[in-house]
Simulated assay, not measured.
Amino acid sequence: MAATGDTLTSQSYIQHHLTNATIGEGFWTWHIDTLAWSILLGLVFILSFRSVAKKATTGVPGKFQCAVEMIVEFVGKSVKETYHGESKLIAPLSLTIFMWILLMNCMDWIPVDWISTLTSLAAGDSWETIEKGQSHVYHKIVPTTDLNMTFGLSLGVFALMIFYSIRIKGVGGFLKELYAHPFNTPWLYWFNFILETIALIAKPVSLALRLFGNLYAAELIFILIATIGVFQLPVHFLWAAFHLLVIPLQAFIFMMLTIVYLSMMSEKH
């Protein structure tokens, strides 16, 4: 943990836990911990929901099947009330976004030292080295505290926004909404284009930064709690209890804004 001498300082401890495990250099730097955990949690969602769908019965459902049905019904209702176009993709896309982000956010509940310590031991570091804060292994287990992950999600939504807009309105209709709205006057086309382009780009940027900012701040607080020492667990669980609201709320906001943005791009003006 990159400490000075044999002393582990709070600054080096926090810096260590906020650093991703990477391979490559420059533009081709890969955050392998973010990739590994996001793929794993995506598979958990797909395989668990697929298992429930295959074993679903018409009788009294089990607890897990009941929970899955409630989530699917909740997401389906949100899509019907918000999305005003016609697409078979929006509902499964919204469910995937909600559950994937929810699972990634839930990794924030795991105490920050548990997985990183196990990773360091598996990599060959001694317990003494880890206690001194001199481990060479970095590992962040919350993918949504990585700006690359949140921007990856938002850019995927942005690509779908452009796709749906061009598919429904055509290239001409898409461009006309950029230069002829809100002031349909030729001498203000240049102003419309600047205004609408900024508004369009702001959507994925705000999506990414909102999710990243909330989860990064929450993770930082968990790390600060871990520096307390022997009394960290009671405080950790108190903050985790408060986090019960934050984690699903951020997944819900990302999902709802995705539905709203796609609905806006699907409407003809």
Rank of each mutant, 00 (worst) to 15 (best):
A2Y: 02
L8H: 07
L8E: 12
T9D: 12
Q15R: 12
Q15K: 12
H16Y: 06
L18W: 00
L18N: 12
I23N: 04
G24S: 10
G26S: 09
W30L: 14
L35G: 03
L43R: 06
I46K: 06
F49R: 03
S51K: 15
S51V: 06
A53M: 01
K54R: 14
K54A: 14
V68I: 07
V79M: 00
E81T: 04
H84I: 11
L89C: 11
I90F: 01
A91L: 04
L95S: 00
I101M: 08
L102C: 00
N105T: 06
V112W: 00
D113M: 06
L121Y: 04
L121A: 09
A123T: 11
G124S: 00
G124D: 01
G124M: 03
S126T: 15
S126W: 10
E128C: 03
T129A: 13
E131G: 06
Q134Y: 02
H136D: 15
I141G: 13
V142H: 02
N148D: 13
M149F: 14
G152N: 09
L155R: 06
F158G: 04
L160P: 04
M161S: 06
M161E: 12
Y164K: 07
I166V: 15
I166F: 03
I166E: 01
R167Y: 07
K169H: 15
G173P: 01
F174R: 00
Y179C: 05
A180E: 11
H181C: 13
H181Q: 15
P182A: 05
P182H: 05
Y189T: 10
N192W: 02
F193K: 11
I201K: 09
L207P: 01
L207S: 07
L211H: 01
G213K: 04
N214E: 14
Y216H: 09
Y216E: 07
A217T: 10
L220Q: 02
L220Y: 05
F222A: 14
I225Q: 06
A226W: 02
T227A: 03
T227E: 02
G229I: 06
V230G: 07
L233C: 09
F242R: 08
L245C: 13
L245K: 08
I247T: 14
Q250S: 12
A251F: 02
V260E: 08
L262R: 02
L262M: 07
S263C: 02
